[in-house]
Write a protein that binds this DNA or RNA. Sequence first.
DNA 1: GCTTGACAACCAAGCGCTTGCTTGTTTTTA
DNA 2: TAAAAACAAGCAAGCGCTTGGTTGTCAAGC
Lengths: 200, 200
Amino acid sequence: MTAVAEIQAPEALEISPAKERLLRVAIDLFYEKGFERTTVRDIAARAGILSGSLFHHFKSKQEILYTAMALTTRSMGESAEAAVQGIDDPVEQLRALVVCELNSIHRESEHAAYVLVDEWRSLDSEHREAVLALRDSSYERCWDVALEGCKARGLLKTDAKIARQFIRGALAWTRNWYRPEGELTIAGLADEVLQSFLKN
Amino acid sequence: MTAVAEIQAPEALEISPAKERLLRVAIDLFYEKGFERTTVRDIAARAGILSGSLFHHFKSKQEILYTAMALTTRSMGESAEAAVQGIDDPVEQLRALVVCELNSIHRESEHAAYVLVDEWRSLDSEHREAVLALRDSSYERCWDVALEGCKARGLLKTDAKIARQFIRGALAWTRNWYRPEGELTIAGLADEVLQSFLKN
DNA sequence: GCTTGACAACCAAGCGCTTGCTTGTTTTTA
DNA sequence: TAAAAACAAGCAAGCGCTTGGTTGTCAAGC
């Protein structure tokens, strides 16, 4: 019998308030310094406990990262589904998804979306698969529907798959230059994205 | 007197063949596992020497990263300048720069471009500034010229600065899905990029 | 032509410190 | 009063880096 990993399915993760507080602290630190440079002592200190006490809540540092990423993925999927609900026009679906992604990068949930992108490599492979499967079944599915809809109406300049990747890249990169406090609003930025990637 | 950092100006870096070999090994490992997870013992072992001997060539692990990033930045700047040389049409300048960037991500120099993007946070701030200054004065300048040229001819759908960021994001993201061994060539991918971001 | 000295490259050993995590016990909470 | 949460202490392993000495190379000096 090979070592069984016993990964908690992300759909089934239940989080106590105490755990949630620790996760918020951990996510902040992962955002500030990265997973590898963040020590369990760092996390514990900012949470006001000793490092050993962390392991009462999580069985390893890796499990902290996994839990953070799985929860973030789950909630981003839920946001995406909520965003397109009741919208039939694929262009408006796309706009809603762009706004939704920009919000999760620039507004919500204490940098959780940053960690999701940056620390992918620090997540070991079994956990990675679990998170990926969850993302494909919720978040990515919403995007596929919207983009295929645009494609069917002849609104895309390129293949839907390529457009998806271009848009995803452009949105992910906004974290390196865009600040929602400035003149350009998130809705305005979303307009620019649609204008760039759709025929007009 | 505060501690003086004594950073080697990236323009003045001279690299012996031995150092270059070590840098190649280090870059490969940084690409595979990340800077933090790569130990000096890893680098030395793959290079066939003992870990202490590394410090005969570099005075710290940090200096290995800095040297790698500075050299990569320098050579990417040179490539960009060579790519646009003799081209007057801003659209063709842009095409050349896109191809150039795609090449450095997907073809050349043992993943050096990956490391440049991924390990930015592991570079400490003084070194970061030095690399950034070099990039702005060569690589970014080429892009600015090309995009302002497009803008002046009314070919851009958005502000030149925003277009720059969208394109940069889309190109950087290609590493997560595009493989040059597949059906789509780099020139073909560059076509798709131009078609997406320029008026047609 | 052989010796000498200087230098770069590397080895062998290990120091001081930090890391993730464990254990046994005490405090807090419900 | 029992379970949950936190403490106190520390272990084993691994980390970047240092030190002192051993090679191999090659040009200058007699």
